[in-house]
Computed example of a mutant assay.
Amino acid sequence: MPLKSELIADVRRGPGHGLLRISGLTPDLDPLEPLSVRIMQNQQGGRYLTSTGAWQAEEVSQILPAPGWDGAVAVVPLGPTLFDPLAQLPNNVRLRMWVTYGAAGPEMSSLSLVQPLPPSFARGEAPEPVMPPPPPPPPVMAEELIPEPEPLLPEPNPQRIEPPLREEPPELIAPARDPLPEKPKSPLLPLLIGLLVLLILGGGAAWKFGLLDSLLGGAKPAATDAQAPASAINTREDLARYLGGNPAAAEIITTAQDLTTRGKLDLAMLAWQQASRQGSPEAGLALGKMYDPATWSAATSPLPQADAETAAFWYEPAAQAGNVEAQRRLGLVLKAMEPGGSGPQTDKAKEWLKKAADAGDAEAAAALK
């Protein structure tokens, strides 16, 4: 099974941290077996990511800790040193990664960056200044030590003077007074209590039936960022706030279509990726077309050139969900990757083309002949 890799933000640890998710690996018998990766970007003749976060022309591998497992997906946490250089790459940069794990490897896969990926400086925090240690106190010379004088004890008093006896004054008894006459209760007090009870009951009823809003003219709360119209999304920050409201996949698809119509293809690609991660076959098909050599064009894709492997990566989830067009396009892409007409990709291409043909797709049936 070919490897699939993607880098997503680790929302639990915050900016500067991510999760590297790799599908297609087989868990090693040793749970502490480390994982080795070699990450390369295709631009500028191919450069490799080093352990210090820099890019260089020579090949270099990174030893990562033993992965955790989310079902059949290996999950490895990345810190700011490796995460920040990847998070700051533009959308049109394509990444490849070679993975060595246990007895298998190295195996190659494309590495997808799932936006948004906030780098560590997105926290907005400045590092705390490091204060120099205080200077040591000057040494005390021996001649400067002055002995403290011994405390003087009071001299004992041989004579003890007894205090004079005090005579207790006679107890004073206050004369008895007649009790004060009881004041008559005011007849207005029960009326005031009754009016207060009526006001409380009336206010509760008005609140329950929504009369207070109409009487007081209360304004409704303003719409949140997730409810903002798609036409208001013009930058990555706008899109990040919109996706932060957790909209449904169908709403994200409508937003991606609007961004495509307005020519904002880079933002549309990010919206399609979010909808595909939420399980939308339509989004996976749209992403595959942006990479597919058969459908790629500068007018419909923000990428500088086509990439058949990445197109197959996005087509496959949509094909597995039953999208017939995605099944046909996945089969054609895999078939074109092996012009000789034999090999594992060709066999897999025939399987997907047959599924599409069985579903009534005439182009898939013609490609099988």
Rank of each mutant, 00 (worst) to 15 (best):
A104R: 15
L165C: 10
N234G: 13
L86E: 01
R21C: 13
L117N: 00
D258R: 12
S342Q: 13
A228K: 07
P163S: 09
T26D: 09
G284T: 07
E144R: 15
E351D: 13
P134V: 02
W207A: 12
A318K: 03
P170A: 06
N246A: 11
A104Y: 14
E150L: 15
P158W: 12
I233K: 03
P190L: 00
S109Y: 08
E59V: 13
V73F: 09
K348I: 10
Q159C: 13
M290Y: 05
A312W: 01
L215A: 12
A228W: 02
P293Q: 05
A142D: 12
P34F: 06
Q56V: 10
L95V: 01
D10M: 11
G124T: 04
P164L: 10
P190I: 03
D238I: 06
N323S: 06
Q257P: 02
A275F: 02
G16Y: 03
I8T: 08
Y101Q: 02
T346D: 04
S51G: 08
N246P: 02
Q320W: 10
S280L: 09
A319Q: 03
R96A: 10
A222M: 12
P175C: 07
K335E: 08
L165W: 10
W272A: 01
Q44C: 04
T261I: 10
L259V: 00
V37Y: 00
W98V: 01
L330D: 03
P293T: 09
